[in-house]
């Protein structure tokens, strides 16, 4: 299971490398900076596979969107497949999907757009077999940016869907 997840992450990294306009998701950064668990068979390091930390750092808890868009891109699909797989493996876990926007829109429209983004992520997870009753959504619009530099590089990081597992 772990290996399959890693394969997914590597695939995601490769796809991202081909697509410079998208920000690097945390999963890619984690995969690049830490050795794969298989390389340390005696004393495996890193978070336990069923932990929230594992979900956030290895599976990847974040996907990104284009300006004023909510479609799940190919790179996002890869991350969401990993999320669905993990959620299906740990059925006691529930997830809240946050929809976020950049600052280049009005407050209320962005609440609607963030809601759309969160629900697009939810619909994709449901299509991969995650029970809808385990998934909540919430829109934060542009109220919770990750990054406050007023430039596209930063805005692209803020246009995100964040899966928070409980």
């Amino acid at each position: 299971m772990k290996l399959r997840t890693l394969t997914t992450v590597v695939a995601a990294v490769l796809m991202l490398a081909a697509c410079n306009s998208k920000p690097k998701p945390q999963a890619a950064a984690a995969a690049a900076s830490s050795p794969p668990p298989a390389a340390a068979p005696v004393a495996p390091r890193g978070p336990a596979p069923d932990s929230i930390e594992y979900f956030n750092t290895v599976v990847g808890n974040m996907v990104h969107f284009d300006f004023d868009k909510y479609d799940v891109t190919a790179a996002d699909q890869s991350i969401l497949r990993g999320q669905a797989q993990w959620l299906n493996q740990y059925p006691a876990r529930t997830v809240t999907i946050e929809g976020h926007c950049d600052e280049r829109g009005t407050r209320e429209y962005n609440l609607g757009l963030g809601d759309r983004r969160a629900n697009a992520v939810k619909a994709y997870l449901v299509s991969l077999g995650v029970n809808a009753s385990r998934i909540k959504t919430i829109s934060y619009g542009k109220e919770r940016p990750l990054c406050v530099v007023s430039a596209e590089d930063c805005w692209s990081k803020n246009r995100r869907g964040v899966s928070t597992v409980q």
Binding site: L111, G112, D115, R116, R117, N119, A120, A123, S139
Partner: peptide
């Protein structure tokens, strides 16, 4: 506005 399944 009220949102349902991503539609406001």
């Amino acid at each position: 506005s009220a949102a349902l399944n991503g539609n406001s």
